[in-house]
Design a protein around this nucleic acid. Structure first.
Lengths: 184, 184
DNA sequence: TAGGCCATGTAACCGGTTACATGATTAG
DNA sequence: CTAATCATGTAACCGGTTACATGGCCTA
């Protein structure tokens, strides 16, 4: 799933700007399963316009930089449906935390404990944010998606809280006798 | 989490080859939360050797290409611990399926249904594979990690099965009157 | 007055993927 | 006879990130 399709999808919910699209994908209703930076969004938007999938108009606002508002075209909607119709690529999950968990035996307990706690904090934060987003949503499909995210994340959090003790017990058990004078 | 650290982590469980590291990260015990291709593994291994974090020896096997077996050094173990000790980057989750779910209203029902079913099939497959991996494992930390993956994935699967009906009801409800003659 | 927010955009860089090259053996 | 498995490695390419440029307004 490339930024191009993401922009099209976000614009299918209503007109928006590059700046807002970034917010949507980083802290908004899409944040749970996508991510994008300005460096990829602005060029994608420009290309979409060149391809006739979106149109733009400038809005001058006093005391603020002008906004470039993009709107999806009929051709854009068709292209979006086509892109989403072909079999989706598999979900991607990458976790540095689980790599730490995997190597727990070779790591000092405090490293493992801190990793667990930071993971718990960040899931809690994400769940809280997502719950807040759900309340603000009106589109039922968006609500379904965010709700699914909340449920899965909340369960993952519970699993972690329930079993963290087992992992912490293992921490450091195969620690080599290297004293903690980390060479730079 | 880069391929470099991944290789180091895998080698901390015992000596291995580039070929095997790929298998581990694609269908083995690390497959749940990492991924890597030959094009990134081989150069990473070469760099690790140049840095003195691993050593290699050649094993000639009759009727098969020779294998280059890598072994982690003490310096490599130290480097691994150091890298895993600094605060982990947040988990990454990317889902094309959820983008489809999000846009359900604009998509034909069969597209949504097929996406759900392919998602169900692939989670089932992953859970089955991961369960199988758990049985073969001996390292308790690796078991904890895989078990955590199985639990989370199985719950995500159940959530999807339970609520898919709600999403399917929404499918196509805001479908524009474009007939299904997709222009190439 | 420092930093953050609004807002758009470009350019350098980089990690990683895809595809290719090579080649024997084994399974269907 | 074809395809897959074993096995290592390189090179081209590409999508995306980071950092920079610009600048007014508002808040602490």
């Amino acid at each position: 799933m490339n930024v191009r399709t993401l922009c099209l999808a976000i614009l299918s919910f209503g007109e928006s700007t590059g700046y807002e699209i970034k917010k949507q994908s980083v802290e908004g209703k899409f944040s749970y399963f996508v991510d994008a930076s300005f460096g990829s969004i602005y060029p994608a938007l420009a290309r979409l316009e060149a391809d006739g999938f979106v149109t733009s108009r400038q809005e001058i606002q006093p005391g603020k930089p002008p906004r470039k508002i993009y709107e999806i075209t009929e051709a854009g909607r068709t292209a979006l449906v086509e892109e989403l119709s072909e079999p989706p690529g598999r979900d991607v999950f990458r976790s540095e935390f689980l790599l730490i968990a995997m190597c727990a035996k070779n790591l000092p307990q405090h490293v493992v404990t801190e990793a667990i706690e930071s993971r718990i904090r960040s899931i809690e934060e994400e769940v809280g944010q997502l719950r807040h987003i759900v309340e603000e949503l009106d589109d039922e499909a968006a609500i379904w998606t965010a709700q699914y995210g909340v449920t899965c994340k909340a369960q993952a959090l519970e699993n972690l809280k329930k079993t963290r003790g087992d992992l912490e017990k293992l921490a450091g058990s195969r620690l080599s006798n290297t004293t903690t004078n980390a060479a730079e």
